[in-house]
Simulated scan of single mutants.
Amino acid sequence: MKKIIFYSYLKCSTCRKAAKWLESKDFEFQLIDIVKEPPLVNYLNLALEQYSDDKKRIFNTRGKAFKTLNLDIDRLSKEIIQLLLSDGKLIKRPFLIYEGKKVILGFNEIEYAKDFI
Score class of each variant (00 low, 15 high):
Lys2Phe: 00
Ile5Gly: 03
Ile5Trp: 03
Phe6Leu: 07
Tyr9Leu: 11
Leu10Ala: 06
Leu10Trp: 00
Leu10Cys: 01
Cys12Pro: 03
Ser13Trp: 06
Thr14Gly: 08
Cys15Lys: 05
Cys15Gly: 02
Arg16Lys: 09
Ala18Arg: 08
Lys20Cys: 12
Lys20Gln: 13
Lys20Met: 08
Trp21His: 09
Trp21Ser: 07
Trp21Arg: 08
Trp21Asn: 09
Leu22Met: 14
Glu23Gln: 14
Glu23Ala: 11
Glu23Met: 10
Ser24Met: 01
Lys25Asp: 11
Asp26Tyr: 04
Asp26Met: 02
Phe27Glu: 10
Phe27Asp: 06
Phe29Glu: 05
Val35Thr: 11
Val35Ser: 07
Val35Tyr: 11
Lys36Gly: 06
Leu40Phe: 00
Leu40Tyr: 00
Asn42Gly: 00
Asn42Val: 01
Asn42His: 08
Tyr43Cys: 08
Tyr43Gln: 07
Tyr43Met: 04
Tyr43Asp: 11
Leu44Arg: 04
Asn45Gly: 07
Leu46Gln: 13
Leu46Pro: 07
Ala47Val: 11
Ala47Lys: 02
Leu48Arg: 05
Leu48Glu: 08
Glu49Thr: 10
Tyr51Trp: 02
Tyr51Cys: 02
Tyr51Pro: 03
Ser52Gln: 13
Asp53Thr: 15
Asp53Arg: 14
Asp53Leu: 14
Asp54Gly: 11
Lys55Glu: 05
Lys56Leu: 07
Lys56Met: 03
Ile58Met: 04
Asn60Val: 02
Thr61His: 10
Thr61Lys: 14
Arg62Pro: 00
Gly63Leu: 13
Lys64Asp: 15
Lys64Ile: 15
Ala65Lys: 13
Lys67Phe: 02
Thr68Gly: 02
Leu69Arg: 15
Leu69Ser: 14
Asn70Gly: 08
Leu71His: 11
Leu71Gln: 12
Asp72Val: 11
Asp72Met: 12
Ile73His: 09
Asp74Tyr: 00
Leu76Ser: 10
Ser77Lys: 15
Lys78Arg: 09
Lys78Ile: 10
Ile80Met: 03
Ile80Tyr: 01
Ile80Gln: 00
Gln82Val: 00
Gln82Trp: 00
Gln82Phe: 03
Leu83Arg: 08
Leu85Gly: 02
Leu85Ser: 02
Asp87Ser: 05
Gly88His: 09
Leu90Phe: 14
Leu90Ser: 12
Ile91Ala: 09
Lys92Gly: 03
Phe95Leu: 04
Leu96Met: 09
Glu99His: 10
Gly100Asp: 12
Lys101Ala: 14
Lys101Arg: 15
Lys102Asp: 05
Val103Leu: 03
Val103Cys: 12
Val103Ser: 06
Leu105Gly: 14
Ile110Lys: 15
Ile110Cys: 09
Ile110Val: 14
Glu111Ser: 15
Tyr112Lys: 07
Tyr112Ser: 12
Lys114Thr: 08
Asp115Glu: 13
Asp115Thr: 11
Phe116Gly: 10
